[in-house]
Structures are given as C-alpha cells and as structure tokens.
Design a binder for these strands. Sequence first.
DNA 1: GACGTGGCCGTTTTT
DNA 2: CGGCCACGTC
Length: 774
Amino acid sequence: MAFSQTTFSGSDSHPLLDGLNADQRAAVLATEGAVLVLAGAGSGKTRVITHRIAWLVDQLGVPAWQILAMTFTNKAAREMGERVGHAVGGQSRDLWLGTFHSVGVRLLRQLAGWAGLQPSFSIYDTDDQGRLLAKICKAQNIPESHYKPKQFATFIDRAKNRCLGPDDPRLHEQAYGVFEKKALAVYAQYERDMRLANAVDFGDLIMLPVSVLAKEQEVCTNLARRCRYVLVDEFQDTNFAQFELLKYLTSAHNNLCVVGDDDQSIYSWRGAEVGNILSFPQMYDPTTVIKLERNYRSTSTILKASTAVVQGNRNRHGKVLWTEAGDGEPITLAALPSDRDEADWVARTVELLRGQVKLSQIAVFYRTKACSRVLEDSMRRFRLPYVLLGGMKFYERAEVKDALAWCRLLVNPDDSAGFLRAVTSPKRGIGDTTLDAVQAHASRANLSAPAAARDLLRRGEGGRNRDKLAAFFHLIDGMRDGLDQLRANQVGERVLELSGLRKSLKDEGSPESQDRLENLQQLLAAMSEHADSADEPTLRSFLENVALVADVDALNADKERMALMTMHSAKGLEFDVTFVVGLEEGLCPHANVINESARDGRDLEEERRLLYVAMTRARQKMHLSYAKQRRRFDGLDMPTQPSRFLQQVPRELVQVARIHDWRSTSSWGAGGDVTRPTVASVVRTGTWGQPRPTPLTGSLLSPQQRAAGPADDVPVIDRSETSGGFRPGGKARHTRFGLGQVLDVAGYGGEAQITVNFPGYGVKKVVARYLTPA
DNA sequence: GACGTGGCCGTTTTT
DNA sequence: CGGCCACGTC
C-alpha cells in the first residue's frame, strides 16, 4: 500500500484530528485493512467516520470515487456527504454514499443482465408484494384463513436475507412443517411472477447483486477494484446477505472499516445478525479493534440510567461508557392514570419547556406505532407543532400511488402491479372480470399482466372491454415518447394530464379531492426537486428514490416542531429533551416476547436494547413514563403493569413526578371544538430552572415499598396478580371448550396468552379476552 | 363494473 | 374503534 498511517506518525496536529480524542484519532488513522470500531452511544462515531473519509481524501490523496460508505438511512448519507464536503470541498461529490439498499439498486442496475432483469426494473413495495402474494395464495388454493400473505412475505424476506433462493437445497432441507412446504411453493411462484414483471423487492436489492458477484468473477473483480476503501455504519444491524455483499466489494483491497455497537442491535427480526459484529475479528484477520467509550452526548445521569438498563443483558460485549459531563437534570419518571393522560402530560410538559428548548430538539419515543395516535391527539389539542415519523407516508396516499403506478408502468412496461393499479384509476370501465381474465392469461402464457393484456388484444380476445383496454395502452404508449430525455416532473405532468387523474379529481369537486389535487401537485414538486438535485433527472431515478426513502429521511431540524417516532426510528438521532412513553409490561417489553423461554430470552434482550437506544438519545433531559391503564385497539381500557425495565433504573437518578388532580380525560373534546384541557397542576416534574430535588437513594424499588404495596406514583411489579384474574392453578371458562384448568399465564391484560387444559379438548393456548375466570 | 354496507379482524419493530 | 375485504345492489 502506498500510504499507511505510519507515514504520519508524530504529526498528530492536523485540522482533521483536532478535537478528537486518542481513540477517535486512532479510528481515523487506521485506514488500512480491517478495522472494527466499537462505538458506544453518543461516542462521536459520525464524526470519526466523516473525519476518516476526509483524511483519506485530503491526506492520503485517495480519489473520492474509490471510497464507499454505507449508512443506515439516506439522511445519514446526505449529512455525511455535507460534512465531508465541509472538510475537503467539491471532491466529496464523487464519494459513493448510501444505504445498503441504495447501493444495491445501483449495483443491480449495472448487473441487471446477469440477474435476469431489464435495467428498467421496478421496485415493488410491501403493498405490491402483499397483493402478489394474495394472488398466488388464491391460485394455489391456500385459504387466507389458514396462512396470511404476510407470513409468506416474512418467509421470503428471511430467505433472501440469507441469500437463499426458492430452489436452494438448504431451504428445502429446513422445510419441516406444512407451512414451510407451502411457503416454498409460494416463494417459487412469487419469484417467477416478479421476474415476469421485471420487478424486485427489498430483499432482492441485496441478494441479487450478491448472487451475480458470486458467479461472475470478472465483474466482481472490476467492482472490487473500485472499492478501495469501504466504511459501514451501524454494522450491528447488518444481515447475512449484506455482509456477503461487503465481502465481495472488499475482495480486492480488503480495506473495510465497520462501525457499530452490539448494545444497539435492534433489527434481529429483520435478519440482522449481531454475530456479524461479534465475530468480525475472526472473519477478517487481522482486525484493528478500536473502542470508543467516551460519551459526548448525554449527562452522566442519563448515561448511568441507560447503562443500568442495558446491563440487564447477558449477551453483550460490555463496554464501559463514561462521560465528563455533569449530572445535569434528574430523570423524570411519571405514572399517569391512562394513556390519554400520559399523552396530555407530555404535551403539558413540553408546553412548560417551550422557550427554554427548541421544539425541534424535543422528541417522544414509543414502542409501537399504535401509541402515536393518542400522542398526536394531545399535541393537536395543545397546539404543539409536531412531525410524526412513520405515519401515513405521502407516497402511500391513494392518489399519489395512482400517479406513481402510471409512472412505473411507463418506465417498466412489464410492471404488473403498476398496471393493475393504473388501469383502474381513474375508472375506465375495466374491472375484476377483465383483469381476472388478463391474469389468467398471464400465468398461462408466462407473461406479465400488461404483456398478457396486450397479447389478448393482439389476438382479438379482449372480451367486451377490448376497446377500453386498447385505449389504455394507446395512452400509455403515447406518454412513453421521449421518456429518457425528459425530466421526471415533465413526465409527471404529462401523466397527471393524460391519465385523467387530475380531471377526475377536479370533476369530483369535494373538499377532499381538493386536498388530493394538492398532493398531486406536491408530487410534481418533489419530482422537480429531484430532477434538480439528483445525479439523474429522470423519472426512473425518481421512482427509485421513492421506493427507498425512509421516514427519518424527512426529519428536518430547521422546522420548529417536535418529533414523534418509534424507538426503532430513533436510532442514530439525538435530542436535547426526550420522552420515552408507554413503559409498561406488554408494550416494552412487548407482549409477543414476554414468554421468554422462546429463543433463550434473546428477544427480551432485544427489547432491552431497544429501550437503551431510546434512552441514549437524550442530551440533557429525559422523561420516562407509563400509563396505569391503556386503551386497546378495540376500545377497551386495560390495566397495566409498569415495565420491568424501570426497576433497573437507579432510584437516585430519578425524580418521580407528582401528579395531583389529574383530570379524567373522558369529558374532553366532546363538542367537536378544540378545547383546552384544564390541568390542575403538575408539580416538581423536574422542569428546567427548578431547584434540584433531594436525591433519593436506594433502588427504584426498595423491598419496603414492595412490601407496603403499590404507592401511588411508584412503579411496582406485582407478579402474583397476573391478567384479569387468571393464574396458574385457577379455572377458566371458554365458550366452546367449557371449563378448564389454567396451566400458565404469559403476558398481561386481554392479550395475555393463557395456557389452559380443557377436559376433552386438551391443552390450548388462548388469548385472555376469550376467557372468563372461574 | 362501480359503489355501498356490514362483518370481521387486528398491533411489534422497517428498508 | 377503525381499516379492509367480501358480498350485495344498482
């Protein structure tokens, strides 16, 4: 290697190294070979990565196009580009920055031929995938009552994460059960249909490049030569397929730097393998291992509390994070009567903070998306500007999807999903009968749906709707003219006008259709913006982007509004003030993993890491809260127990919010008017500027408190009282099975899994709400 | 074929 | 409670 860090030994004063600690410098300077950076939460890893790239370009003279950096989100990639640009100027434009999926698309465009695709391939979203799977299930006589298409989607996704195609013997060896056998058949058909439609799914974006690179030595070598330095952020959340891809990309130069934190691995359900980071040094030998353990983000109070929680896990490397920051504010812990009160309490507290903290520096984290609704309600009532990540995305709106369907079909004439949507919107007298015939012909003749439709027309078999169908294709073909020369927004304009989408909304004339028209206009604006800023101004490039944007990508600190998001979305972000809500058994940890015998309690450990991720987002002040009763999706209020994780938060770091006279929310908002709730008082919630509380000592749950029974504001987990009166040894009645003996209770509330032995029927696992205690 | 209504089912987490 | 789907009617 022409350059190595030894060239610079002794010269440790350089603008790019200033302000970095010794470990961070080491991570910047260890440019050659395999490097594993174990970066604790808030340890300045983004800084390290950007400085490292800048160092490569500026000091080692590496051409930017020889550097590939993978991030977890597009937003992170964008920011990284900006920050490197700051340090090294215009050269940074040539860097290859992106998420695994965006890198995958780019590769696949080039490798399309080897993968059996046209470069104009479409990327199916979850929705398209679900529809296709539903169709396949129907065709294979798999009743939806038995297996849902979603389950097959999960199966396929898991297979692809492991780079296993439908014919892979390893997959067949593992097909033990009925479901797996059926799933394999569905998978095989799914792949056939996807290829006919010249379409790929998210899993393909990694798996297909891998399979091409595995087979085509020369292609692989050429590509790998270009990837002289490869960096990967959030490495703990990479899956097998992604690691495979990395191996091929780095096979020429072997300069791979991965950065991650095993304590923040929260995507195992998506196939992420912590093993990738744990066994990295064995796979790449020798590996330079650097630990970043100094936290620059949070107060020591927040850091201690977070650490205490994650220390409950047995399977971890065990870093020791430290900080020189002061104690700062105590953590506020609040127990609210109900979920709605909790949401109001958040709103109320934010209101009190206004003026002291920018709204964009405040975030609320929750375990499931369902929790967002109550919060949204409260933010609206309190008139607090907010942004909700993971809500109904702009690109998920019906009218936008309609327009995009047309666009997709223009770019990829075989896009079956796009065709099926476009041909019925706006309504043109083509319905299920015609489309069923088209699909039947498609599978008979091995054609994509649009190709099959054209084929029927050619043979004069279009049925009664021949003319309508012919007119549709005439329209499409006309629009396709000059596609690659036009900017995305120009094509978009053409689509809106000629498809009749705009007209049909105008004709409707309702207030909602007005909104929808505006959304379409917004879509054009987004296309235009893309055409201005992206590498390629084409519609194809725009569609690619649409398919791969994440919610977080839209997060914008310039806008003065607080953020609501799931704990998963919080990864990689930081805020001055945070709220972690819904800390209840069944929610966090989630009910689905509470019977921890499954997978050795590994799921439970992931829940704990998830909370750790959420807790380590705060710079200055953290609020933890739970509701004593939470409304279920069916409208029933269920009693809850505080999360077991709360017990691990050292009591001396916490100030319990005293909540007096918290008015019941039942009468609010009845008149339809926006009414301000009257909140009697919130005292001593540790808002800024208030005197420090007297530190409390001992653990959050002292034995005395446990013995004394639940004090009003102190979380106590009483495991003797489980769900709705069910306890092992007791009796339960089921409408069909009659009376039985309860063997086991897992979970809480109406969703608890109760194991019951019914005489004559045997042992059944039943959800609590279908049972009555007897 | 388009549109309305009633029944049912459901909530982890996401690129 | 609310969204989606299957079914029924025009």
